[in-house]
Amino acid sequence: MSLELDLATGLLYLLVFPGFAFLFVYGLTAEYLDRKLYARLQNRVGPPVVQPLADFLKLLAKESAVPEDATARIYNAAPWTGLAGVFTAMLYVPVWSEQAAFAFEGDLVVVLFLLSLPSFSLFFGGWYSGNVFSRIGTTRTITQLFGYEIPFFLACFAPAVAAGTLSTSGIVAFVEANPLYVFVLLPAFAIALLSLQAKLERIPFDIPEAETELATGALVEYSGRKLALFRLTKDVELVVGAALLSALFLGGPAPAGAIEGSVGLVAGVVVFFVKTLTVIALLTVLKAVVARLRIEQMVDVFYRVLVPVALVQIALVLAVGLYTNGVIP
């Protein structure tokens, strides 16, 4: 392939699909579906389709003040860092086939790192905005981060151990070839779902936001354009997280991956939407049916229950691997 063509496809990946334009539209759509389903579960009508777009545009057009006590440089840079992180993460997650837009051995680690960037950007933005509420919120964000990151990493490494590779594309190809692993990996999927919910700071793990106690926590001083970016980051993180989960635990484009040509491409994208929307719907139902935990309850659940379960899951995966290879009769 010539250099120009390489550059063109790279830009296409970066800016259109599965990069900027696609993530922007799908992120806002996911927010709409999330809010609509949430409203229906509460026996309400819910917002109109264009609601997330209206919120976003309105915030872009509003004044974006920098508080006097804030450290302006960090305060202004924080929203961009998180957004850049989640947009980059999507390039390493397979969408239409088992091959991601860009891939190398070990990109799973990079994706996991980039997905925790929004939490850190939230921390830095909130901490340096010079408000007491946002400082309490950010300490809770970090406490919660220590709670969910370890179970999340362990759960994501279970399919990596099964496939024997740290490349997301390799894992997808492996699960596609051995579809029964979807059932073996169910506990890890559940752990990853809960951790993703905590990562996105949604009910029952919205302790850092806690409207009634902290007045939106870390984002308390953010307004206008920067707030819009933080909200977009949350939306895109939801989509990327759902895409990662569907790739690691649900086999990515599993039934459609075998089809060749452009038909296979379209089928792969359709399967991608079905699977990610299923994950998003699960997260929304979880948000609608439970109440908020306290911070120490949350850390307690993640350390005492989910970490051991994740370790057992990895042991199970190893045992199944040995059995299928005929080491254990």
Binding site: R35, G46, P48, A65, T216, L219, V220, S223
Partner: peptide, 18 residues
């Protein structure tokens, strides 16, 4: 939920900045 003002996009915010 009875009045469901999210139909109009109205949301209650917790801080004056939003």
């Amino acid at each position: 939920p009875r009045y469901d003002i999210e139909r109009f996009g109205i949301q209650q915010k917790d801080t004056p900045r939003h």
